[in-house]
Design a protein around this nucleic acid. Structure first.
Lengths: 337, 337
DNA sequence: CTGTTAGCGCATTCAT
DNA sequence: ATGAATGCGCTAACAG
């Protein structure tokens, strides 16, 4: 690999001249610029990023703790990641991934090794221990999601309370009186996973406001679980006419159970699924959905972090996204049901 | 941030002693080791990875070109990535992601910048231009998938010919005489996407061998497309009794169309879906599937690359995975249909 | 406009 | 068993 020194020699100039020619940080005569350019091409020179970043004292790399496979593997995760990668790229940063099962020590090493300038955390729990560790170290990070006390830290999150709440309101306005909510997996609910807690809360508040019964069930993220949960739901509460859920991976089974019970969507039964529009495309019949803007949230995460990195005394920004109701069932073959 | 020099000073030893104490690459007296250790803790010192990797002349970072969002966003992609991240981590490497829309120049810069030691390419086309560029540069890379002439390069791929071929055979053995194949999106087929070409080939060979009619259709990766394609299929060929597909994102719609046609799985109609087992969990009724080992393939990709990186004259390894038939419909509620 | 020099933080060869 | 010195490849004062 040719170095900048090689280029300098070949072009008959000094090292620093080459450096400045490349960075444009000081005027270079057109003639020497030419010679340098030519030397670069002849040698097929490419600057060494490791050296450059060491000298600059910044890696321009953002770390992302990848969610654990076992729990929650959804297309939405992919969309977070995708949005983050693209945003990072646009700002001249790269994303480096690390698998999730990290103890506090690994996390500290990862952070303080200087390889990554900041971190993006996904799958935040209300009392996430990773946040404590990082905050104590004063290490820059942002959350996709949030803890119960996120004051000092920027985050991008969905307004889960608003999402389920407005889903209930919408259904009530359309005449529904018995509305069930299917939550995330039981262990997520128990372990204080924010989206599980908050979405349930929004549902509760709103059915209570309308003085409707509160019917909610947790559900593992598989089709089979969804099938069984709805089977049970419809057995225990045969008069339920609508289901709200964010549980992406279980929806197919839920829907199947509804069908087998002889219910017809949207004639005498309704679903509101709060999932990404891309994910919604994978369902039949196309459901009524509330768009979960996963891609935008990943993007926002990166941008909040970069803001924090490039502006030392920027104050934390809390970005709450709202899920927008999308009437997917009005178009397409669902109407033929 | 404290540096190694700070630690040395505090411990009253030389820089190199600290370095060697950390790396263990030369004997250190127990006493000085203690002092160094203590200094490290008091200062909360962590070695700077950028500097370390520059001095070592290796980044221990592997680049991965992330697939384009628009085409093919599936859980399988996520599983490739997940497998790769985990494997890399186990070998002490990290994965750095870059978005796909790169021209030859960006790709060359990315590769030769020295930030990444090697590259993993996904979504390989039969005549993928990226491979030419990288091969010409002599840059280490591996493919998940393969080009039509992958001689010099390691890859991990699914044996698509075998997959569809054995799916046909299995159906024939179970009495099916009219077996349709639903391929990937039309533009993927046309643009020479290996899996689309090879899977179709396996299907063709085998139905021809059995002297059965050849009925194949391309299908966009959405539920709606799947619905419409199968609708048309069943209209044009009402005597079809089985469908084979790898088109993950369209399956829900395909299935819906089948149901609406009054066909019952598995009584008088069969599906074989070649998808990852994790993805299969999201379907109802649980289909007959052939397990697409996405996670393992991602893992293999990383391991092949590391092999190449750490053993200069390792010869290329071609790793073909086989999809295994899994009778998912035998368990669970599908039997109630 | 250009050259010289001193770091960035760590690894490592040569001495001792 | 330890220290001093050089180098990894680049950036950025400082000096002309």
């Amino acid at each position: 690999m040719p170095t900048m020194q090689d280029v300098a020699k070949k072009a008959g100039v000094s090292l620093s001249t080459v450096s400045h020619a490349l960075s444009g940080k000081r005027p270079i005569s057109e003639e020497t610029r030419q010679r340098i350019q030519q030397a670069i091409e002849e040698l097929n020179y490419h600057p060494n990023e490791l050296a450059r970043r060491l000298a600059n004292q910044q890696s321009r790399i953002i770390g992302m703790i990848f969610p654990r496979l076992a729990n929650n593997l959804t297309v939405m995760q992919l969309e977070f990641v995708m949005g983050a990668i693209e945003a990072a790229d646009q700002h001249g940063y790269s994303l480096l991934f690390s698998p999730s099962p990290m103890d506090d020590n690994d996390l500290t090493n990862f952070a303080r090794g200087g390889l990554v300038q900041g971190l993006i955390l996904m799958e935040i729990r209300l009392d996430d221990p990773r946040c404590e560790v990082l905050s104590k170290q004063g290490f820059p990070y942002v959350m996709i999601g949030r803890t119960s006390n996120p004051d000092g830290i920027s985050y991008a999150d969905l307004d889960f309370v608003h999402a389920t709440s407005s889903a209930v309101s919408y259904l009530v306005e359309n005449g529904h009186q018995k509305i069930a909510y299917i939550d995330y997996a039981p262990f997520l609910v128990e372990s204080g996973y924010g989206p599980a807690i908050r979405s349930l809360e929004g549902y509760r508040q709103t059915v209570n406001k309308y003085e409707l019964p509160e019917i909610s069930l947790a559900c593992n993220p598989t089709s089979l679980a969804g099938y069984e949960v709805v089977k049970k739901l419809l057995y225990d509460h045969p008069d339920v006419t609508a289901i709200i859920t964010l549980n992406d991976n279980a929806i197919a089974g839920m829907y199947q159970a509804t069908q087998e019970a002889g219910l017809h969507i949207p004639d005498n039964f309704s679903y509101i699924a709060i999932i990404s529009s891309r994910r919604a495309e994978m369902f039949m019949p196309t459901l009524t959905t509330m768009d979960f803007p996963a891609n935008e949230m990943g993007q926002a995460g990166v941008e909040l972090l970069i803001q924090r990195l490039e502006n030392e005394d920027a104050r934390p920004i809390h970005k709450l996204f709202e899920a927008k109701l999308t009437m997917r069932q009005s178009s397409g073959p669902a109407s033929k049901l």
